[in-house]
Nucleic acid binder design. Structure first.
Lengths: 331, 331
DNA sequence: CTGAAAGCGCTTACAG
DNA sequence: CTGAAAGCGCTTACAG
């Protein structure tokens, strides 16, 4: 590998001077010298060693991104948002799939420390009292931005208002005339699902509807759980339940499939609404109505905030991005 | 940040000794000393600086992964395969979305050089005569593995046999009794699509079917192009064409939608088969029959080969992974 | 405008 | 078994 020394020798200057033209500092360099150095760099094909540079400057221009699973259709847009923004701001991103595993999260967090990433973006860990990460983020001083609800009160976060969005979705169902609405939740410890359930309660109660216990069915955010939730629910098909509100799209799509297999029509017999607006929603039949979460912007904004943080700017504790109802054919 | 010096002072040894226990070298260290150092590391919360380490060892344990667009459903599994494997092998991965842009590719390649990644995995650049990358990979000495067809004869690659897989898919259609089969291709310069077209030709000719010129419709791998391909094709619906073979799933799904909108049934009136087996295929109605490309394994294997390469092992120039026909309801 | 030298935090050959 | 010192490839305060 060609080093700054080689360039210096080739251009007949000191490495100090090479470094100066490399970094385009204020420190003046005569035009001729600069020219000479530049051509030397060209001719030798010199690319400065970022490690040597980082060692001195104490920064890597690299950030760590922790997501849970890239094959979950919710994440690709987040990753794209983060990466696009990072690229524009001069950062590079290390991707980490944590698979909701505490062990893997810890492992990656440690790798991030050793690699001295400038900052971390953390998403999908919105699980109540997750001690490991909390401890990490308290003891370490790596700037971190959370996408979603932050488990740690001190970390800035970018999120949507799940309670409100969920309430609006359910209000819409009620406005359509539905009064017996089943909801399929995520895992019990998902803060996201807890909020979405709260919105469901608010909407029903506000309209004087008392939700029955068995209208709340626990799922786990996967297709399968939406499918079985409907399959095992006797009231669906007896004309009692007329609508299903799933806490994410995958479960909503699973529910639609089960409904159709039971011989009912969506939305005529049973209306369905989901949450997130993953790409899949527009390809299923009927198209799934859902709450659009601005995932790309969530990623983009998180990176922007992280960058501000790293530049020493003031940053708001919570940034809330708007959701909107996207209506297709399922309700 | 606590450094090796702090640990050394705290444990009352030299940094040499700390380094030794850190790296668990052969060089003997007395058990008591080792113990003392270990507790010092614990107590101080020391994480060795990977940059300092890398500067000396001349390796980063980091690899660069170039894909085209993470929101394209083909990529998440590849990325997951690469990352899982990287993690297991002690590597960290920098993700780069190149968006098929030459400029962005070059930019990232240069970042990779400056960061001194140990290796690169390159995918989705299977475009005929792509000079930039070729030049890069010839002039630089960064080990690189290509997923898909390699534009550079010297780079090891992991791929599937698109010609054969495509031929098998078409033979299957023919076996079902279809003789007039339309194919929707990718962009004209896509090596992948060129191979899949070749397989199509081989299957038809082998059965004595002379493909008509207008049976080959150019698409661009996007949903939309599959949709319009069918929409604008007059023969579909006149009972002439009975099957469609799309060069990827997104186009197949677009085609199905257009067929259904024209009032025909899949597969009764027109059979459809796709390629790749992206997750979407099992959620559309009818489920899409397709050629399964082992994307996760493609990623995993590429990383394994890269790792072998970096360890100085011999590595085969081309690794071909098997595809298989996955039949659902669309044909 | 230019350069010699110290230092960033490690590893390792060398000496003892 | 232990440590002093050189060196990895940069940046920057200091001197001229």
């Amino acid at each position: 590998m060609v080093t700054i020394k080689d360039v210096a020798r080739h251009a007949n200057v000191s490495i100090t001077t090479v470094s100066r033209v490399l970094n385009d500092t204020e420190h003046a360099v005569s035009p001729e010298t600069k020219e000479r150095v530049l051509t030397a760099i060209q001719e030798l094909g010199f690319y400065p060693n970022a490690m040597a540079r980082g060692l001195h400057l104490n920064k890597t221009k690299t950030i760590g991104l922790i997501i849970q699973d890239i094959t979950n259709p919710y994440y690709p847009s987040i990753v794209r948002g983060v990466e696009d923004s990072a690229q524009a701001l001069g950062y590079t991103v290390i991707l980490a799939n944590a698979y909701r595993s505490r062990e893997r999260t810890t492992k990656y967090l440690n790798v991030f420390r050793e690699k001295r990433v400038d900052g971390i973006i953390f998403t999908g860990g919105g699980v109540v009292k997750d001690a490991v990460e909390e401890k990490f983020f308290e003891h370490t001083h790596i700037s971190t931005v959370v996408i979603g609800k932050s488990c740690n009160a001190k970390l800035p976060s970018v999120q949507v208002n799940n309670v409100q969005a969920s309430r609006e979705a359910c209000e819409y169902l009620i406005k359509l005339g539905h009064r017996k609405i089943v909801t399929i939740t995520g895992p019990a410890d998902s803060t996201t699902s807890i909020d979405r359930l709260e919105g469901y309660y608010q909407a029903l109660k506000q309209q004087g509807i008392e939700p029955q216990d068995d209208w709340i069915i626990q799922g786990n955010f996967e297709f399968e759980s939406g499918y079985t939730a409907v399959q095992k629910f006797p009231a669906i098909g007896k004309g009692e339940i007329t609508a299903v509100f799933a806490h994410n799209d995958m479960m909503a799509i699973g529910a639609m499939k089960a409904i159709q297999e039971k011989g009912f029509r969506v939305p005529e017999d049973i209306a369905v609404i989901g949450f997130d607006n993953i790409p899949l929603t527009s390809f299923v039949t009927p198209g799934l109505s859902t709450v659009t979460v601005p995932v790309y912007d969530l990623g983009r904004t998180a990176m922007k905030i992280l960058s501000d943080l790293l530049s020493g700017h003031e940053v708001s504790r919570i940034t809330t991005l708007p959701t909107k109802l996207t209506l297709r054919q399922s309700c």
